[in-house]
């Protein structure tokens, strides 16, 4: 997914992603393209540390497909910001 909201993954979008991922028992991983290492998508502190900016590509993975869809939806909605 590409970050499309102008302000990037600041505190609020990070919290929304963490909330969405936390609804699922299964692990949900998140990483920024070009950066090594997966982070826990349930952790707002982890997501913030991605420093995702407008235009960055973000990759999400999980055994649970629905979890991925939930997160994708947030990105598509630009976190309700625009």
């Amino acid at each position: 997914m590409v970050i499309r909201n102008k302000c990037g993954l600041h505190t609020r979008p990070s919290a929304l992603i963490a909330n969405a991922a936390s609804k699922f028992q299964e692990d949900v991983g998140i990483k920024k393209e070009g950066v090594e290492g997966w982070l826990n998508a349930k952790s707002v502190l982890g997501i913030i540390s991605l420093e995702g900016c407008f235009g960055d590509k973000i990759i999400v993975s999980s055994e649970k497909e629905e979890a991925i869809f939930e997160v994708i939806k947030l990105f598509e909605d630009k976190f309700g910001e625009e």
């Binding site: 609020r12 990070s14 963490a18 909330n19 936390s22 826990n40 952790s43 707002v44």
Partner: peptide
């Protein structure tokens, strides 16, 4: 909302 997410943060 960020406060609440932080309280539940696994880290």
């Amino acid at each position: 909302t960020v406060h609440l997410a932080l309280l539940d943060d696994p880290s």
